[in-house]
């Protein structure tokens, strides 16, 4: 039985000293510190919000985020609904991986489909055929329909200049818009998730991770990923210096020669604008060596959409993109 309102212990100034030699044992290495921070953020979301959703695409960052959520609430299941915006141009093996994971965890998955919006005319295909920018409306509708008040994303600050200023708790207005001047200063590890009805907060538990950290964590924790993150043979052609897979939405134009190359993907997004890189990396350890030696950022190497202009990402974020 517990004692209620015990008299205060005599005040002691003796510190809780550890045995000699233990001191250096109490150090967290980089991955442990990032893991601890991400779990803290995931638990803050559970503590501060009623209806959190976790964006889960089957891409490596979202896989790592979901694994961290499993660790954060164990032995209970993570309290978030999983949410995916399907552009209709996703890699089939990634969708299969997504569904297996959802089943394994017994989670609930909500899919917002860009294709549905195109079919009934709520959205129109862009002249350049890329669908990433089209995700915003279905995403915001899904957030409203699910009455989600927090949406967890796997975005990292090292990905892009506009993201370097993103908060860990990023408040969005009723239109999902991000206003850099309305963002709240974040001090210590106090995250302020207060919001008005209709607003929601985007939360980025991996903010302080780099691409290499993510891969090192995948290696250390032996986290399974869709196969296309590792080297495999694929029919590709070169466009703007990038290797684009031949697929239903990405056909070579005149003069673009198709060849079979050993490649892997550094990011897996929409097939129409995500490119592969030449690679022999068959496992996480080999990927780490490749990434560490790479002279290009992952977006610079593989995302046509970010090349549109210097401020491409900033503009999309303001409109409510992830």
């Amino acid at each position: 039985m517990s004692t209620v309102i015990a008299p205060p212990e005599p005040i002691t100034t003796r510190p809780d000293h550890a045995p000699e030699g233990e001191r250096t044992a109490y150090r967290l290495d980089l991955l442990d510190r990032l893991e601890s921070e991400a779990i803290h953020i995931l638990r803050e979301v559970a503590g501060q919000f009623e209806r959190p959703a976790l964006l889960f695409s089957g891409g490596k960052d979202s896989v790592v985020m979901l694994e961290l959520a499993v660790r954060a609430f164990y032995p209970a299941p993570p309290p978030s609904t999983l949410l995916h915006v399907d552009t209709g141009h996703n890699f089939p093996e990634v969708l299969a991986f997504r569904d297996e994971t959802v089943q394994r965890l017994g989670a609930r998955l909500v899919v917002a489909s860009v294709q549905d919006y195109l079919d009934d005319g709520r959205l129109r295909e862009r002249p350049d055929g890329t669908r990433n920018p089209l995700q915003t409306v279905p995403l915001l509708d899904a957030i409203a329909a699910g009455r989600f008040d927090a949406v967890l994303g796997g975005g990292r600050r090292d990905e892009e200049k506009a993201r370097a200023k993103e908060r860990i708790f990023s408040i969005r207005d009723a239109f999902g818009a991000w206003d850099p001047r309305r963002q709240r200063p974040e001090l210590w590890d106090l995250y302020n998730g207060r919001h008005a009805p209709g607003e929601h907060v985007r939360v980025f538990p991996l903010s302080n991770w780099t691409e290499l950290d993510v891969w090192r964590y995948i290696e250390r924790e032996r986290i399974a990923l869709p196969e296309l993150y590792y080297a495999h043979e694929r029919e590709v052609f070169e466009r703007d210096g990038m290797l684009v897979a031949v697929g239903p939405w990405s056909q070579p134009r005149r003069g673009e020669a198709v060849e079979v190359r050993r490649v892997r993907y550094r990011t897996v997004g929409d097939m129409s604008c995500t490119a592969a890189v030449p690679s022999d990396a068959g496992d996480a350890a080999a990927v780490i060596r490749e990434v560490a030696g790479s002279r290009l950022t992952e977006r610079g190497a593989t995302r046509a959409d970010d090349r549109l202009s210097e401020a491409a990402m900033e503009d999309r974020k303001k409109e409510g993109y992830f």
Partner: peptide
């Protein structure tokens, strides 16, 4: 980097209570 944790008071702010209420737990 960091502080000497062995000289600090123990403080754990509770974020969430985990209650699975499942057959195994």
């Amino acid at each position: 980097v960091g502080t000497d944790v062995t000289t600090e008071p123990v403080r754990l702010p509770v974020q969430v209570v985990i209650r699975p209420r499942t057959a195994t737990h």
